[in-house]
Amino acid sequence: MISLIAALAVDRVIGMENAMPWNLPADLAWFKRNTLNKPVIMGRHTWESIGRPLPGRKNIILSSQPGTDDRVTWVKSVDEAIAACGDVPEIMVIGGGRVYEQFLPKAQKLYLTHIDAEVEGDTHFPDYEPDDWESVFSEFHDADAQNSHSYCFEILERR
């Protein structure tokens, strides 16, 4: 099963200049909980913004210009990325925008964090048809001392 995991502000903004323009430790914990011990696929820009392999996960970098870091697996196509994951129950696609666009048609599940923030962004989550998805989990949280904005975790499964 292919799943996408993303944090989205208003207007589906997911990033600005290779960074997330908010401070939500709870979302980072949600991300870790849902990706640990699963292969993660990301684009080169996302890889560069993280700066290191995510521990406890097979890191697969999709790029037309593969790098030389041998701590991760470099691939040039969506099919190659899927094959590099091996026989696993769930593959997690973690961004960025172009990689989400490439995998959305193949995805069966979306793990979304909806952030109540209007922020400037240069990267967006692809538009998706809500009628194609069923919400199977939703959990709202107010902003607090650690988390700069209110947010809602949601899991959607393709109908």
Rank of each mutant, 00 (worst) to 15 (best):
I155V: 07
I115G: 01
G51P: 12
P89N: 09
R52K: 13
H124W: 03
V75Q: 05
I60Y: 15
T46F: 03
V88H: 12
L36A: 03
W74K: 03
D132A: 10
M16A: 14
K58I: 14
W47E: 00
H149S: 02
D11P: 06
G51I: 12
L62Y: 04
E101T: 05
M92E: 00
S49V: 06
M16C: 14
E154V: 13
E120F: 10
E118I: 11
S148R: 01
R158M: 06
R57V: 00
A143Q: 08
L112F: 11
S3C: 00
C152E: 07
C85E: 01
A9R: 00
D144V: 04
L24G: 15
Q102R: 07
G67C: 15
V72H: 07
V136G: 06
V136L: 09
A81V: 05
A117V: 10
Q65N: 12
P130N: 12
Y128Q: 03
Q146P: 05
H45N: 13
I60A: 02
P66T: 11
Y151G: 02
D87R: 09
R33P: 01
A107S: 05
K38Q: 02
L36K: 13
A84D: 05
G97E: 07
M16D: 03
I82S: 04
A117E: 07
R52N: 14
V88S: 11
T73S: 12
N59M: 06
D132S: 11
Q108G: 08
V119H: 04
N59E: 06
D122I: 00
R52Q: 15
P25N: 08
S64H: 08
E157N: 08
F31G: 01
C85L: 13
T68K: 10
R12F: 04
T73V: 13
H114C: 11
S77G: 10
E17F: 02
D131W: 11
K38T: 11
V72K: 01
R71L: 09
A84I: 10
Y100T: 00
H114L: 13
D116S: 13
S64I: 13
W47R: 04
H114F: 13
S148Y: 01
D142T: 10
P53I: 10
A145Y: 09
A6C: 14
A117Y: 02
N59I: 14
V40C: 12
S64G: 15
I41P: 01
T123E: 02
D116V: 14
A143M: 07
I60F: 14
S77K: 14
R33L: 11
S49M: 02
V78P: 15
D79A: 10
S135A: 03
I50K: 01
R44Y: 06
E80Y: 04
P105Y: 07
H124G: 11
P89G: 07
E129R: 12
L36I: 08
I5N: 00
